Amino acid sequence: MNPRNILVTGGAGFIGASFTHYWLNKFKNDRIIVLDLLTYAGNMSNLSQCYENNRFEFIWGDIGNSDLVESILVKHSIDTIVHFAAESHVDRSILSPDAFIQTNINGTFSLLNAAKKVWIDTPKENNQPVIKHRFHHVSTDEVYGSLLPNEAAFTELTPYSPNSPYSASKAASDHLVRSYLHTYGLQVTTSNCSNNYGSFHFPEKLIPLVITNVLQNKSIPIYGDGKQIRDWLYVDDHALGIELVLNKGKVGETYNIGGNNEWTNIDIVKLICSQIDLKFAENSYLREKYPQAFAALSGDSASLVRFVTDRPGHDKRYAIDASKSESELNYRPTKTFEEGIVMTLDWYLTNDDWWQSIIDGSYLETNSKYMII
């Protein structure tokens, strides 16, 4: 396989950074250029190890800046875009949807236009062949809406029915990507994934929130009755799925990437709490490192759970049917949830400097040093 020059948008975020680490470690001849605006969820600490690699470069900037994107595509001979950049937190989209429309819809539109110009339009204008390329768009299972408890899982043919400003903005971006294939011939693929978890997960999301709140002896807020169901996917297994789409997927196709792993929110919280209690009971070092974690020290982290008013439009259940990816791409998750959650917990227990810098806001000062073009 020929070496790739890959532009990863949103590569300082949780999933984008994990994908960047995964790809650099696995494909030793490929180059990765990360483009990220470093909004609140972007964290340069996520990429600190990548700077030791001469096949990596970071560029601070906005996917909505077509001139910048075009210059990157040309300068670095980019042949593949993996588009992660997105506002992704449902609660934030309810309180302030403007940024979601700007980034997820307008930003994707601008990125598509830049790719089309560099890869298709300019070569044609100069009587040259279209540049061989791939535009891979990373989306979410939330575009499909909500499932009843016994309803069949989402397939790639499930009608879109988004229920939040976040999922609506992602649905719109999915449609834009599809249109650029059928109208202009841009070589696109799309993947819709289930909930990711793992290292570098921003602490406002459920799993890292539970972990970090227990370690700080803060209450664990649970929406409604906590019976909402999600399919959970270890973040490196998501990267594996994207790898298979890029290497084996058919242009124009959508692939669901799931973990075959449905859990209620309250059961996840109970599992994490029990794992933390177990680790504190077995490890005196943790008891010394986190003396303020009183509930964990007493073996009752679950006592921190507090049920709060449910958020508006809260989808009851998401579930991914990944049979298309399994049959066409030979995709299989490599981690069970029990394995992945222990690995994730161990990472947060070890990397307290990372999550503390987010909670106290000091990571923004580190980010600011990279905010130059």
Rank of each mutant, 00 (worst) to 15 (best):
Thr140Pro: 01
Leu47Val: 03
Glu142Gly: 11
Ser173Glu: 06
Thr122Asp: 14
Asp174Thr: 10
Ser77Ala: 15
Ala114Asn: 02
Asp315Tyr: 06
Met44Trp: 06
Ser45Asp: 14
Thr190Tyr: 06
Ile131Asn: 03
Leu111Phe: 00
Asn196Cys: 14
Gly107Trp: 09
Asn163Gly: 12
His238Gln: 11
Trp347Leu: 02
Tyr197Leu: 12
Pro333Ala: 09
Ser301Gln: 07
Ile94Glu: 10
Tyr144Asn: 13
Gly185Val: 06
Trp119Cys: 09
Tyr234Val: 10
Pro165Asp: 06
Glu328Arg: 07
Arg306Met: 09
Tyr166Asn: 06
Leu244Trp: 03
Glu151Leu: 04
Arg306Tyr: 08
Ser173Met: 07
Trp60Gln: 01
Ser45Phe: 12
Val210Gln: 06
Asp141Lys: 04
Ile359Ala: 11
Asn126Val: 01
Lys117Trp: 07
Ile220Cys: 07
Ile359Leu: 15
Trp355His: 01
Ser146Gly: 09
Glu339Arg: 13
Lys248His: 14
Ala239Tyr: 02
Leu181Asn: 14
Ser179Leu: 15
His89Cys: 03
Ile63Gln: 09
Asp231His: 09
Lys205Val: 05
Glu142Gln: 12
Lys132Cys: 02
Ala168His: 00
Asn5Asp: 12
Ile372Met: 10
His133Phe: 01
Leu240Gln: 13
Trp354Leu: 12
Gly361Tyr: 07
Ile229Val: 14
Glu365Leu: 14
Ile268Asn: 09
Phe135Ile: 08
Phe280Pro: 05
Leu7Trp: 10
Asn256Tyr: 01
Asn29Cys: 00
Gly340Lys: 11
Arg230Asn: 05
Leu329Ile: 09
Ala295Asn: 01
Arg311Asn: 05
Ser301Val: 02
Trp23Cys: 05
Asp36Pro: 00
Leu148Trp: 06
Asp141Trp: 05
Asp62Arg: 00
Arg4Phe: 12
Tyr285Gln: 14
Lys218Ser: 05
Gly259Ile: 07
Leu345Glu: 03
Gly107Cys: 10
Lys218Arg: 13
Asn196Met: 13
Thr140Lys: 03
Asn367Arg: 08
Cys273Gly: 12
Pro291Leu: 11
Thr350Ala: 08
Ala322Ser: 15
Phe19Met: 02
Leu112Ile: 09
Lys26Asp: 01
Glu52Trp: 05
Asp231Glu: 04
His182Cys: 09
Val235Tyr: 02
Asn2Trp: 03
Lys28His: 14
Asp236Gln: 01
Val82His: 00
Ser96Phe: 12
Ser169Ile: 06
Lys170Ser: 11
Ser77Val: 08
Asn127Trp: 00
Tyr51Val: 02
Val82Asn: 00
Phe100Ala: 06
Phe337Arg: 04
Ser88Ile: 14
Leu271Ala: 06
His175Glu: 10
Pro203Ile: 14
Tyr180Met: 10
Leu111Pro: 01
Gly185Thr: 04
Trp119Tyr: 09
Asn351Ile: 03
Asn256Arg: 04
Thr103Gly: 06
Glu338Ala: 15
Gly145Ala: 09
Asn260Trp: 08
Thr183Leu: 15
Thr39Ala: 09
Asn53Ala: 00
Glu253Arg: 13
